[in-house]
Design a protein around this nucleic acid. Structure first.
Length: 355
DNA sequence: GCCGTTTGACCATAG
DNA sequence: ACTATGGTCAAACGG
């Protein structure tokens, strides 16, 4: 649905990208481009800004050179970000807004952690200004974002953005969100068995792979939502140096509400606690659709669901959280694995022939 | 024993 | 057909 590239609205807070921005990645890439990265785009991204993924669907590909920090446009952040009257900063902490910071974009992906206290707008502006000068690139002018603004909204849940310029792929079931973030490594899941896999978005994730991707010095981790039958996945790129997350790409959609955060996992506070403590950090959101992936069955087709509803849903959701589901899922998976193993022992092809 | 991460290998797709 | 690359799997490992 067209809304997948449309406005973001949450709790009276709306983000409407300009028509020329067909995806947040593009937006983010544009930021990099404006910093002079454009000339290196092809080099840093062998397959271009977007590369073709499976089934010919354009997939996100960051054009950001590995060492180039994502920076905000050289304009006053306040020009496109403002807290609507009646909306407290605390509420914003749970709103899927997009913010830029000097080296990252602050936002809430699906839940929205906005460590506002960590963000220094002036610093960001100064940085971008200096970088623009350094590059001598006129594209760094703020004009590119003139049409880019946050709007405060009053109520209506979803204002489906009926732009007709959305990419077909975004109209399909899969939604991808790209986040650029800077997350203190101390907040990250601490390897081993008890890592907090909730990260900051309130969902439970299980890491199922890691790769060193071409064109980036940062390893990319692959996560799946542990919720039973949820197809949501995300890719997280983390800086080797400090462990900060440099990019998060969401793929798919949650088919369940956000799990309750009242339960603490073995590693300490849950996502909610982290958020409230303000030391978590997912920073940017770039929802490919106006619905967050957390919406039940939120496909691009039925994305006219409200974030507000989601929040309400989260507050009153059933008590069986996702942990049991995760366990069930795990158990089922283990069982399946055992069965497969048994089968392979009797038959012959190994696990590698599963496909 | 449970549960999540790590890691090497395999597969799919694009060029 | 071949190569490069990204995505996924699952055994091994560790807390």
């Amino acid at each position: 649905m067209a809304s997948s590239t449309g406005s973001l609205e949450h709790g009276g807070f709306t983000f409407t990208p300009p028509p020329f921005i067909t995806s947040f990645t593009e937006l983010l890439s544009s930021a990099g481009d404006m910093l002079g990265a454009g000339a290196d785009q092809e080099r840093s991204s062998p397959r271009g800004l977007f590369h073709r993924g499976a089934r010919g669907v354009p997939k996100f590909k960051s054009a950001q050179p590995p060492s180039l920090p994502i920076s905000p446009p050289p304009m006053s952040p306040s020009s496109y970000f403002a807290i609507p009257p009646g909306l407290s900063p605390a509420e914003l902490l749970d709103s899927p807004v997009l913010l830029h910071s000097s080296s990252n974009i602050l936002a809430s992906p699906t839940t929205g952690a906005i460590p506002a206290q960590r963000f220094d707008w002036k610093k960001a502006a100064d940085l971008i200004a200096s970088q623009s000068q350094q590059d001598g690139d006129s594209r760094a002018a703020a004009g590119g974002f003139d049409d880019f603004s946050f709007h405060t909204a009053t109520s209506n849940a979803v204002r489906a953005h009926t732009t007709t310029t959305s990419l077909p792929s975004f109209e399909e079931e899969q939604q991808q969100q790209v986040e650029k973030a800077a997350v203190p490594s101390s907040n990250r899941a601490s390897g081993g068995g008890n890592g907090n896999t909730k990260l900051e978005d309130g969902y439970n994730w299980r890491k199922y792979g890691q790769k060193q991707v071409k064109g980036s010095e940062n390893p990319r981790s692959y996560y799946k939502c542990t919720y039973h039958s949820c197809s949501m996945k995300k890719k997280v790129e983390r800086a080797l140096a400090d462990g900060r997350i440099t990019q998060i790409v969401y793929k798919g959609a949650h088919n369940h509400p956000k799990p309750l955060s009242t339960r603490r996992n073995s590693s300490g506070g849950g996502a909610a606690e982290e958020l409230q403590a303000g030391n978590s950090s997912l920073s940017a959101v770039a929802a490919a659709g106006c619905t967050g992936p957390e919406h039940s069955g939120a496909t691009a087709e039925n994305s006219s669901v409200t974030f507000g509803d989601d929040e309400a849903e989260n507050g009153s959701q059933r008590s069986d959280g996702d942990e049991p589901d995760a366990k069930r899922w795990r158990t089922a998976r283990t069982r399946a694995a055992l069965q497969a193993a048994a089968a392979s022992r009797s038959a012959s092809p190994g696990w590698w022939s599963r496909r």
